[in-house]
Design a protein around this nucleic acid. Structure first.
Lengths: 229, 229
DNA sequence: AGTGCTGTGAACATAATTGTCAACAGTCCA
DNA sequence: TGGACTGTTGACAATTATGTTCACAGCACT
């Protein structure tokens, strides 16, 4: 046991990718694990097995595990940003179809797993800021259309809160949707989510009309803003 | 190396708890880790260090790691259920103060970390069902008050969706709240969350009145329910 | 004080995971 | 054909985690 035994003769042919191909395949496999188990669930050996390489290959391409995680998270967040912008700027703005916009956002948040990704990262303390201020931008765009169009007197924070409410609700639906429908005794009702979305669209559209009315009839039954401290 | 060297003489006094005390302390420490890093982030040695015991002690009390995790998760979920019921059945129902109810739910979801817990478990695939159907029960109670009181014609699914919307939004706020306010360019505005809650209360109250009106004025601009498939 | 029950911990065993290293093996080009 | 470049891998090292063993040490009871 003084010297290392070396290299038993090999028969199987060794597949050789370009560096870029290898990185892509590794990132793809890692992103699956990221969605399934979060950043903490990324294991070099598992990913290597998924891709069909040995784990030192991953270290060769990324240096260390942390760098791989950064790369995957960065690419995934870039995907979220791109999808979000795409959803915002699609034809919906030509004809301001709130329903279509919501449906698109649902698709990117729930179907493409972006909601889960954001939740994973938020829970692990990752992205506590959005350099693009996507929600602010979206609110700006929608608000501009509102005041230029049917609701000239709408308040800007009203539009912003509409955006925030829809985003929060749809994001949560992407994470705890199943649990929610079960808790609401609608587990077997496959049409419930769609009915809920339609209901939400109606609610928001209805509110947009009222909120733009010049004088609110009710004298604001809101709770007194007592400065507690 | 035939026999094990045994037990160097001890000076430090050994603290002895009752079995129940020990379990409690261990569960408390584990619950902190659960909130901070999720079920996967529970480490026997860390928890042992927090409590001030050695890790075999934990195994002695719980058998193995998995059983500990089950115990912590179970106790935490029981806490969620209890807090939720407490929030629902508090004085708010005597005087149906939606604002107070929302505020209580926010407190239990965000401040007490229940939102994070539910998100952790949902992301890891844990509780995809709620045997108590809390949201359904809550909707029932509120709906009974609605139809018995000011909105005799309210539809039951309308009430249910109000509950679902508020729950989803507040839950998401407990998880990605900071990110959301930053993305909305309201990161520095400490009063924004409270204004948002007040706005949400107004929105829901306003909607409850309209939804109870006998005939909707608008001929439903909702998207056509084309059965896609 | 003696005795049994039981909570406790040092040392050990074992498994999983990241990271290192040297050598192997495609692929391209002179 | 024969290097050079570099993607690839087996073997090993180091670290960290869970789980086991067994003797020790409080505490209650007689």
């Amino acid at each position: 046991m003084g010297h290392r035994v070396r290299t038993p003769p090999r028969r199987t042919k060794r597949l050789r990718r370009s560096a870029e191909e290898a990185r892509e395949q590794i990132l793809d496999a890692a992103e699956k694990r990221l969605d399934g188990a979060g950043p903490a669930g990324i294991r070099l050996q598992e990913i290597a097995a998924d891709v069909g390489v040995s784990h030192p290959t991953i270290l060769h391409h990324f240096g260390n595990r942390q760098a791989l995680v950064e790369a995957v998270v960065g690419r995934a967040l870039e995907g979220v940003r791109r999808d979000a912008l795409a959803a915002f700027t699609a034809e919906g703005f030509e004809a301001p179809d709130v329903a279509a916009l919501l449906r698109r956002i649902v698709r990117t948040l729930a179907d493409r797993g972006h909601a889960r990704l954001l939740a994973w990262l938020a829970l692990e303390g990752r992205p506590q800021e959005d350099p693009d201020h996507l929600l602010g931008v979206l609110a700006d765009v929608i608000h501009a259309r509102r005041v230029a169009g049917p609701h000239p007197t709408a308040r800007r924070e009203d539009t912003l809160f509409i955006v925030v409410l829809a985003s929060l609700a749809l994001l949560a639906e992407g994470i705890v949707g199943r649990l929610t429908w079960d808790s609401a005794r609608l587990a077997g009702d496959a049409g419930a989510p769609e009915r809920f979305h339609a209901w939400l669209v109606d609610l928001l559209a209805e509110h947009m009309h009222r909120a733009a009315a010049p004088a609110p009839k009710t004298p604001r039954p809101r709770a007194a803003p007592k400065p507690r401290r």
